[in-house]
Design a protein around this nucleic acid. Sequence first.
DNA 1: TAATTATTGTGAATGAATTCACATTAATTT
DNA 2: AAATTAATGTGAATTCATTCACAATAATTA
Lengths: 217, 217
Amino acid sequence: MARRISRKISNSTIHRLSIYYRALMGLEREGYDTISSKELAKREKLTPAQVRKDLSFFGSFGTRGLGYPVKELKQRIAEILGLNRLWNVAMVGVGNVGSALVSYKEFARQGFIIKLLFDNDQRKIGSNHKGIIISDIANMKSQLKENEITIVILTVPASAAQKVCDDIVEAGVKAILNFAPVSLKVPDDVNLLNENMAIELEHLSFSLTNRNMVMFD
Amino acid sequence: MARRISRKISNSTIHRLSIYYRALMGLEREGYDTISSKELAKREKLTPAQVRKDLSFFGSFGTRGLGYPVKELKQRIAEILGLNRLWNVAMVGVGNVGSALVSYKEFARQGFIIKLLFDNDQRKIGSNHKGIIISDIANMKSQLKENEITIVILTVPASAAQKVCDDIVEAGVKAILNFAPVSLKVPDDVNLLNENMAIELEHLSFSLTNRNMVMFD
DNA sequence: TAATTATTGTGAATGAATTCACATTAATTT
DNA sequence: AAATTAATGTGAATTCATTCACAATAATTA
Ligand SMILES: NC(=O)c1ccc[n+]([C@@H]2O[C@H](COP(=O)([O-])OP(=O)(O)OC[C@H]3O[C@@H](n4cnc5c(N)ncnc54)[C@H](O)[C@@H]3O)[C@@H](O)[C@H]2O)c1
Ligand SMILES: NC(=O)c1ccc[n+]([C@@H]2O[C@H](COP(=O)([O-])OP(=O)(O)OC[C@H]3O[C@@H](n4cnc5c(N)ncnc54)[C@H](O)[C@@H]3O)[C@@H](O)[C@H]2O)c1
């Protein structure tokens, strides 16, 4: 029953699975029963071969001559991505970015349940934020364990990030989404992803600057 | 004087340039005069060869036996990324995410100046947000042109995103950073980047789910 | 039920990105 | 000033990702 993935799945493939997942949600809403790799690729500006190859790493979900069943494929991708369950999430640093994320209902709808909030600002600690009481960062380590938190969103200032990150790791958390613009050091068995909006802006500024692929030295 | 880049620079290389840039800012603060590819790679969990290859696409900035001059290399990368100038930025949709971004001072420090804010909510239009008056979306097209906006940050609900995006494109803007979780259609000459935090969370949930590279069907 | 059509699933081919490996060269030491 | 050391810059080798191309096959049509 267990399908062993021999090859390592590339980050690009994982990323595209999320894209397919979103596309399929849209298609379901629009009333599609099936979708071909050709049509799915067109919608997401990819190639049909890429779509088929990505999916083939995990099994054969389609029907030759017809395409993929929208509802079922969506469900299969949800399973692959680990979205057919709830994840206990904590967030550290309830400032500008943290507040925006907490109020975002889509995360909960996807199974990412923000259970705990932490901050070190005495004025914030104890206050109720969208139904969750903000806890003192001093209690973080024990509370992360007690509440079986598996994912932490890190939205503290860059200067505090490594220290807080160390504590998160010590609490046994294996997945961190970091918004602070610093390279955090974590052990190999911890999944760290960085969300850095400045880098995206810099990418745009690079593209605008090098429109004709000409540089100056 | 113009150095033609024959090969297309890969997105990964551009992304790493931003990483080097941040690392160099840190190194400068820490008082380093020079840095070797070996040390820079170690800090950012990359390989020395990768660092050297990335930089070599744009010129030879180092000294054999010694390494790269921190201050100068930082400046060169800033030039490559187009950060040695100011960019006029507008933001559409001043809600949770939009508000967080507007209050973020680092963007301005990097040269991304948020000049205009737009919304369609009558209660928000006309109000002063961090020193900027929120304008009516109805006036967006003309104002984007008048103010020579080159980058737009799009933080409206998914349902409104494509329509607003079309107007942005019509105004002649060639770079868009989109936070709405939809695939926007834009002409080939428009640079569109998507910032999707849910996708990052899904990546983490994939990694946690497939820790031993075993899947279930 | 046979012929036709559409589209998957996948090895093989191609293309792209990364890493290797070393000649080159600048700085430092003796 | 020669020898030694350290690290760059870059072709070549390798690894990884994407695309090609087609046999296999399910659905539909005649
Ligand atoms: N605001 C943005 O648009 C934006 C954009 C890109 C990146 N970022 C990054 O995201 C992070 C958060 O940004 P922000 O604008 O929300 O900052 P913020 O200052 O509004 O919020 C940070 C929060 O962390 C808390 N905090 C500080 N030190 C702490 C500690 N040691 N333990 C627990 N909590 C602590 C503060 O009390 C505050 O509530 C920063 O690293 C920032 O660089 C922000
Ligand atoms: N809040 C989050 O943490 C978060 C996380 C991931 C993605 N997103 C995405 O980012 C976008 C913004 O999220 P948010 O939480 O800030 O939403 P929000 O509802 O708080 O803000 C959206 C703003 O856009 C304005 N708006 C709506 N339609 C408009 C139109 N046609 N023209 C101009 N303005 C319009 C609204 O008045 C509002 O001020 C959404 O697409 C959301 O899915 C948000």
